[in-house]
Design a protein around this nucleic acid. Structure first.
Length: 883
RNA sequence: GGGCGGAUAGCUCAGCGGGAGAGCACCUGCCUUACACGCAGGGGGUCGUAGGUUCGAAACCUACUCCGCCCACCA
């Protein structure tokens, strides 16, 4: 297709699919292992199989894709390894919900058949998100795609579990866990979300057993009274010293409770006396351990009262609370109920109120793993970006508690432990076993529970590269270069990967951790299903294209900060894409007869504008590189935006048109060359951010290769030309001045005007040289440069800048009063500036302590201002004289 | 109870020691043969409050106010 036939507005739809397929078909996403080169590796934060692409993913993966495409172009063997997470609870719940529609429960189906259904579901509906990532342009190596439940990952899980078990770092025990009565499983501490809510603090009298009187305790969960086995006070609390060793009687139940002393009790809270329920509170559990108290479980796995609750048996925990409070009141035990706002734990998955209860579960002992994991971060082997996340990580790791890893689910990695019915042996094994290695019995069974999903995620950076096998991939691509993720999973995932990598790989899992913010809605709220305020990235891609979505997300992002999604910004970015498209059209329309391969650069005749834009391009390239290396992708993208739109399109291209459309061959060649050079180079700089449009245009350019994504990244080859930048800025000043003067008196662009310029010799020669360009940029009929002392037209609008006086003799349009007023206003402004400058330069502190450069700059300003003031005054008196 | 982030033009946000910036919105001209998803020009801000450091502070320090996150076993 000829460029001339291409529409004036960029249409992403036809382009994106075509090029993505092309990249895929050519295997560009699969790196070549080159031992002499340093690889660049990112493993994707595996999205849930049940998941669909949301804005957070779009941002997270765009960032990764920018980094990866940048590195690939730099010539580093680059691997971005994709994959998915089996997402235990989420997936199981999903399939159970489908079954429920057919009136089937998983229990009816049985474990094996249920799991078959889950796998079926996974094959059929799971993993849509991978296709959605492709729509985004993600350049993952799909030949290496992994799944946390695939063969290799499962092997890694077994190896790690058994190995930790053998080292005594995984143990099984009866402890208080966070139990979700809805999901029917234990969950880890970080899966509990605390939320402040209003409740009551009930004060209850426990009568003393062998004498008159009572001791009053306070509780927020009266139903747990049924499980009380002691009352505790602080040993230093004089109010209660005389009661120590005595007993109280539990109201309603009648059980005798010892009154014990424990430093856990805060004398200042409530009454200073605490009821102790070892089976339903983690602190009470510990108190119970210290004092050898009974553990009485009164709430069961459904959140209902157990037989131990006596007549309350079978009641829901909240019904029981109500009834018990009534009874306490009736019996005269209830002293009062105070309003109390306190944090209540909810299941992060289903939002049900968590019930702490006693349960036999598997745990990972964290302290021994945490120590090295803290050191590698403090020692700088892993760097968090932005830095402040280091502190968040460290504080959490320092206060870490053991990790409950068993889940009462079916979908997940089944715990590789078998129990012998006969000899009661407990065997952790890397392979499935069918008889007891201790006693030879085949009367054994495997632990029914599965592991926390995050257990397998924690191994992701090395399990995906083949571990526990010593593969080439593992040897070459590990450790990974950077982990890109949101701050919400620092604890869930980032920390645990570090914990697990160190003992098994003896090496950090990644060098850098780049934390980005959340994508919020236009009002600044989290996007969530319940609020219904989420915006589907695919909708944006359909309407505006993937490049637009990507660039919008990147330019709007600042490392570690949240960003708001706004359709206005999407549109503005679409406009930018269109700008790029159209400047490319302009270029291509004029490059028909141009072949960069045939150009001998030394024969070209570069003019000021050429030297200026080439110099700027070099600077921009260096800035972009510096920003990317610093993970400030937003700044990199914004730099390119401004360069392309403001400098290349609005200044350079406008200037180049004259030569492009002119009949001087050499001039035209030069302009063609520079436009081609700058455009081609800029496209490569832009490619990591906007892969599709850049490829489409690049393929149309003469002399391009196979694919822009495999083209080398621009080198810092073009030297900066300060003279050109300085001289060009004078031209810009003059052009802007003329445009402004014309606008002041409403001269339509159709009316050309003579421009008379008076300046010093150097500026005159510069402006003479560039006169044709001034004409075209500032709608001039003629540009007449001359020395300062020349004739100054009276009936004219004028302005003075950088030692240059400019007159537009538009006699019929000039109103002398307005001209005088304008000039006077400028004089006033200039006098103020001079005053400010003089004040600074007469300040001894400034002269003595400010850097010489700054002082010098200020001196130059003062001189320029004074010069300008003199000229303005001359101009004023001349105007007044002619009036 | 601790910790972190934010407060800059009407809106959304950059800037983070040397004279206040962008996009959108607004006003005035323009369909100038790449682009009206555009071009040119313009208006608009005591940079949350109060102190301090400095020759110089939107930027650094301290306190405070408001918004938003995160962590924490006071029953």
């Amino acid at each position: 297709m000829k460029m001339k036939d291409i529409p004036t507005a960029y249409d992403p739809h036809t382009v994106e699919e075509k090029w993505y397929r092309y990249w895929l078909d050519n295997g560009y996403f699969t790196p070549e292992i080159k031992p002499e080169k340093t690889p660049y590796t990112i493993v994707i934060p595996p999205p849930n199989v049940t998941g669909a692409l949301h804005m957070g993913h779009a941002l997270d993966n765009t960032i990764q894709d920018v980094l990866v495409r940048y590195q690939r172009m730099q010539g580093n063997p680059t691997l971005w390894l994709p994959g998915m997470d089996h997402a235990g609870i989420a997936t199981q719940a999903r399939v159970e919900a489908d079954l429920a529609q057919q009136g089937i429960s998983r229990w009816e189906l049985g474990r094996e058949k249920f799991l078959d259904r889950v796998w079926e579901w996974k094959e059929q509906y799971g993993g849509q998100i991978i296709g959605q990532l492709q729509r985004l342009g993600a350049s993952c190596d799909f030949s290496r795609e992994r799944f946390t439940m695939d063969e290799g990952c499962s092997q890694a899980v077994r190896e790690v579990f058994v190995s930790l078990y053998e080292r005594g770092l995984i143990y099984r025990g009866n402890y208080i866990v966070n139990w979700c009565p809805q999901c029917h499983t234990a969950i880890s501490d970080i899966e509990v979300e605390y939320e402040d809510s209003g409740g009551y603090l009930w004060y209850v009298r426990y009568p003393l057993a062998d004498e008159d009187g009572y001791i009053t305790v306070a509780t927020t969960r009266p139903e747990t009274i049924l499980g009380d086995t002691a009352v505790a006070v602080n040993p230093r609390d004089e109010r209660y010293g005389h009661l120590l060793g005595k007993e109280a009687v539990l109201p309603v139940v009648g059980r005798r409770l010892p009154i014990i002393a424990d430093y856990y009790v805060d004398p200042a809270f409530g009454t200073g006396a605490v009821k102790i329920t070892p089976a339903h509170d983690p602190n009470d559990f510990e108190v119970g351990q210290r004092h050898g108290l009974d553990q009485i479980s009164v709430i069961d796995l459904d959140g209902k009262m157990t037989a131990e609750a006596g007549k309350f048996r079978g009641l829901d925990r909240y019904q029981c609370r109500q009834q018990l409070v009534q009874e306490l009141k009736a019996g005269g035990y209830l002293v009062k109920a105070e309003d109390l706002v306190h944090a209540i734990g909810h299941c992060s998955r289903c939002n049900t109120v968590i019930e702490p209860l006693l349960s036999k579960q598997w745990f990972v002992k964290m302290k021994p793993l945490a120590e090295p994991a803290l050191e590698v971060v403090k020692g700088g082997q892993i760097t968090f970006v932005p830095k402040r996340f280091t502190k968040i990580y460290c504080q959490w790791v320092e206060n870490i508690r053991d990790w409950c890893i068993s889940r009462q689910l079916w979908w997940g990695h089944r715990i590789p432990v078998w129990y012998c019915h006969d000899c009661k042996a407990e065997i952790a094994s890397r392979e499935d076993i069918d008889y007891c290695p201790a006693c030879g019995s085949n009367n054994i069974y495997q632990d029914p529970d599965v592991l926390d999903t995050w257990f397998s995620s924690a191994l992701w950076p090395f399990s995906t590269l083949g571990w526990p096998e010593q593969t080439n991939d593992l040897a070459y691509f590990y450790p990974t270069s950077v982990l890109v993720t949101g701050r919400d999973i620092i604890f869930f995932w980032v920390a645990r990967m570090i914990f697990m990598a160190l003992p098994f790989m003896n090496e950090v899992p990644f060098r850098d951790v780049f934390i980005h913010g959340l994508v919020l809605d236009a009002q600044g709220r989290k996007m969530s299903k319940s609020l219904g305020n989420g915006i589907d990235p695919l909708e944006v891609i359909e309407k505006y294209g993937a490049d637009t979505l990507r660039f919008m997300l990147i330019t709007g992002s600042v490392p570690g900060h949240d960003l708001r999604f706004q359709w206005e910004r999407v549109e503005a970015t679409r406009n930018f894409a269109n700008k790029v498209w159209n400047v490319a059209r302009l270029a291509l329309l004029n490059l028909d007869d141009f072949d960069p391969g045939e150009i001998d650069v030394s024969t070209l005749d570069f003019i000021l504008a050429d030297r200026w834009i080439r110099s700027r391009l070099g600077t921009v390239r260096d800035q972009v590189v510096a920003f990317i290396e610093d993970y400030d992708l937003g700044a990199a993208a914004r730099t390119l935006y401004e360069f392309i739109w403001d400098e290349f399109c609005d200044w350079y291209v406008e200037l180049a048109k004259l030569r492009l459309y002119g009949d001087q061959v050499k001039e035209r060649r030069t302009a063609q060359y520079v436009i081609w050079e700058v455009l081609e180079c800029t496209l490569r700089l832009l490619h990591p951010f906007m892969p599709f449009i850049t490829e489409e245009i690049w393929q149309h350019l003469p002399g391009s290769g196979e694919s822009i994504m495999m083209a080398p990244y621009p080198e810092a080859a073009i030297r900066r030309d300060r003279v050109a930048e300085e001289e060009f800025s004078l031209i810009q000043e003059v052009v802007r001045g003329i445009r402004n003067a014309r606008a002041e008196i409403n001269v339509p662009p159709t009316r050309k005007a003579r421009v008379i310029i008076q300046a010093d010799a150097r500026a005159v020669s510069l402006l003479t040289e560039t006169a044709p360009y001034l004409k075209s940029l500032a709608w001039a009929s003629e540009v007449v440069p001359g020395p300062i002392r020349g004739e100054k037209p009276a009936q004219a609008v004028s302005f003075i800048t950088d030692g240059v006086e400019v007159y537009l003799p538009l006699a019929d349009l000039v109103e002398m009063e307005k001209e005088i007023a304008r000039t006077q206003k400028e004089i006033t402004a200039m006098e103020a500036e001079i005053k400010r400058s003089e004040r600074m330069l007469s300040n001894r502190g400034f002269l003595a302590q400010a850097p010489a450069k700054v002082v010098e700059k200020e001196r130059q300003k003062e001189v320029a201002y004074k010069d300008k003031l003199v000229r303005l005054k001359e101009r004023l008196s001349s105007l007044q004289g002619k009036q």
